[in-house]
C-alpha cells in the first residue's frame, strides 16, 4: 500500500516570494514608463477665410516675415539673420507709435508669417521660436513692471479672462497661406 504523504506542518501560503514577484512587476513598469510631458509652441489658428473682406490693417502695423526653402529669412523685404529676428520683433511691437514705420501699439501689431511649401519645418520652428521669444520678453518686462516675477507666474495666478498683460500684448501672429513655389 502506498504510504500517505506526511501532512505539512503549516497551511500558510508562503510569502517569501511575494517581494520577488512585486520586484519583477516593478521593474517591468519602470522600464515601460515614459513620463513625457508634452511641450511645444502653442498657436491659435485663424477661422477659415470667408467671402467677407477682412478689416483693413494699416501697413505699419504689419510685420511680414518670410522664410524660404533655403531657410533664409526676409523681414519686411529685408534679409536678416535668425539671431536678429527677436530684437526686430520686439522693436516693432514695442514701438508705441514712435517710429512711423513700426506699429502703433502692441495691441494692433500683427506679425505675419509666410513660408514656401518647400521650407523645412525646423527652419520654420526656429523662426517661430524667435518670435515667441520676443513676445515672452515683452510680456515678462510688463509683468516685472507690475511687480511680478515673470509673466508665467502672473498668468498662473490670475484667471484667463482677467489677464491684463495678455490683453495688452496679444500674440497677433498670422499664418499666411504658403507660396505654392514651383
Amino acid at each position: 500500500m502506498l504510504k500517505k504523504k506526511k501532512r505539512r506542518d503549516a497551511d500558510e501560503v508562503p510569502g517569501a516570494g511575494m517581494a520577488d514577484i512585486a520586484f519583477l512587476l516593478l521593474v517591468f513598469f519602470l522600464v515601460v514608463t515614459t513620463i513625457d510631458v508634452d511641450t511645444g509652441i502653442g498657436m491659435q489658428l485663424p477661422p477659415p477665410p470667408d467671402d467677407e473682406e477682412p478689416p483693413p490693417i494699416r501697413e505699419r502695423n504689419i510685420m511680414n516675415i518670410l522664410v524660404n526653402a533655403q531657410g533664409q529669412i526676409l523681414l519686411n523685404e529685408e534679409p536678416v539673420g535668425l539671431a536678429q529676428v527677436q530684437d526686430r520683433v520686439i522693436e516693432f511691437v514695442n514701438n508705441h507709435g514712435e517710429d512711423p514705420d513700426l506699429s502703433e501699439s502692441p495691441r494692433q501689431a500683427v506679425v505675419s508669417i509666410m513660408t514656401d511649401r518647400q521650407t523645412r519645418y525646423d527652419d520654420y520652428i526656429d523662426m517661430l521660436d524667435e518670435v515667441m521669444g520676443a513676445y515672452r520678453e515683452l510680456r515678462d518686462a510688463m509683468a516685472r513692471e507690475m511687480g511680478e516675477d515673470s509673466y508665467e507666474a502672473y498668468s498662473d495666478r490670475v484667471p484667463h479672462d482677467e489677464n491684463i498683460i495678455r490683453e495688452e500684448i496679444p500674440q497677433n501672429i498670422s499664418l499666411a497661406e504658403p507660396d505654392p513655389g514651383n
Binding site: 513660408t115 514656401d116 511649401r117 518647400q118 521650407t119 523645412r120 519645418y121 525646423d122 520654420y124 520652428i125 499664418l175 497661406e177 504658403p178 513655389g181
Partner: peptide, 11 residues
C-alpha cells in the same frame, strides 16, 4: 512633425 518635413504638407 518631423524636423525634415516640408511646410507644404503642414500647412
Amino acid at each position: 512633425v518631423d524636423e525634415e518635413a516640408e511646410m507644404g504638407i503642414v500647412s
